[in-house]
């Protein structure tokens, strides 16, 4: 149907065909009609106002959460046990499922030909990591491990054992690294950091309660011995029953073995450097005390 070249009655009929049917959804009040701003009061002015007859429906006093119509409520029957005491101070690792990671790869939001870190994941615009909410990075979980097909070199802050197995089964590599909050703040929005002319921070060393996690080769921790990690890779392959692909023969070997220094936040850039996005310049400190500080 085309409206061009039509006039008068024919055009009107064609337009009528395309117009919506008259229904409650598109009826409009008469011109100059002003709806009353107040609901009716008095003997017959308001009656029930569409809220029904009697009870909580009419009075619209919905019961509060946990209220059991007069019983001693369940949530008050027992003593207070603070399971979640101090939860607002604990480190949080929001989950990133393998299914979502695969979706990012399929929809071309992430480049698997380069190492993937927190910045690459957050830059997709789909994954969130909010340092204001004590998010110390991302937790790679195993949901979708059976459909995961990507070959990646990924760096996350926490990972489950089946997730590690799913990554390594496809010939990829994974590292778990510790990020402190100011490093996360820089990593999730580097453009903002550079615009403030702040130097790239050095990553702090892990806290006492997670030092063991990041030194453990089973977690692919970044402080673990690389030889022990390669042994753990083989052990995991035997445990889960897959043949470990030889990454030494892989054409992307150079990419797959890329790792950051424990103090380094971004690939190819060192802590202490100041980036000028406008003039495309990098300023590197030369003072000894600065170099000593940033080298840790």
């Amino acid at each position: 149907m085309s409206f061009s070249g039509l006039h008068g009655r024919e055009l009107a009929l064609k337009m009528l065909q395309a117009l919506p049917r008259v229904s409650h959804a598109n009826l409009k009040p008469n011109p100059n009609f002003k709806p009353k701003n107040k609901r009716g009061r008095g003997q017959h002015g308001g009656d029930k106002h569409g809220a029904g007859n009697k009870g909580s429906g009419q009075r619209q006093n919905h019961m509060r959460l946990g209220y059991e119509t007069g019983n001693w409520p369940f949530y008050l029957r027992f003593g207070f046990e603070p399971y979640y005491k101090g939860h607002h101070l604990k480190r949080q690792y929001p989950p990133l499922t393998l299914h979502k990671l695969q979706m990012l790869i399929d929809t071309n939001r992430i480049d698997t030909s380069k190492p993937i870190d927190l910045t690459a994941l957050v830059n997709t615009g789909v994954v969130d990591c909010i340092p204001e909410r004590k998010h110390y990075g991302l937790n790679l979980t195993d949901a979708g491990a059976n459909v995961f097909k990507g070959k990646v070199n990924i760096e996350v802050q926490w990972a489950s054992e089946p997730a590690i197995a799913a990554i390594e089964r496809n010939g990829g590599t994974i590292t778990t690294t510790y990020y402190d909050l100011s490093s996360v703040q820089c990593a999730v929005d580097p453009v903002r950091w550079f615009s403030r002319a702040e130097p790239i921070p050095r990553r702090k060393l892990p806290l006492a309660d997670c030092l063991e996690y990041y030194s453990n080769p089973e977690n692919r921790g970044y402080l673990a011995d690389p030889e022990k990690i390669s042994q753990a890779r083989l052990a995991l392959a035997q445990k889960y029953g897959y043949e470990l692909p030889r990454i030494e023969d892989d054409p992307d070997y150079e990419m797959l073995i890329q790792r950051k220094d424990p103090r380094q936040l971004f690939y190819g850039l060192e802590p202490g450097w100041v980036v000028n996005l406008k003039d495309k310049l990098i300023f590197k400190p030369k003072e000894d005390y600065l170099l000593e500080y940033y080298r840790g």
């Binding site: 380069k114 580097p190 453009v191 550079f194 971004f266 690939y267 190819g268 850039l269 100041v274 300023f283």
Partner: peptide, 16 residues
């Protein structure tokens, strides 16, 4: 400090 405009280093900034 020293100033660098090396494109080999700048490609790592573009990645971010």
């Amino acid at each position: 400090f020293e100033t660098s405009n090396d494109p080999a280093e700048w490609q790592f900034v573009e990645r971010l």
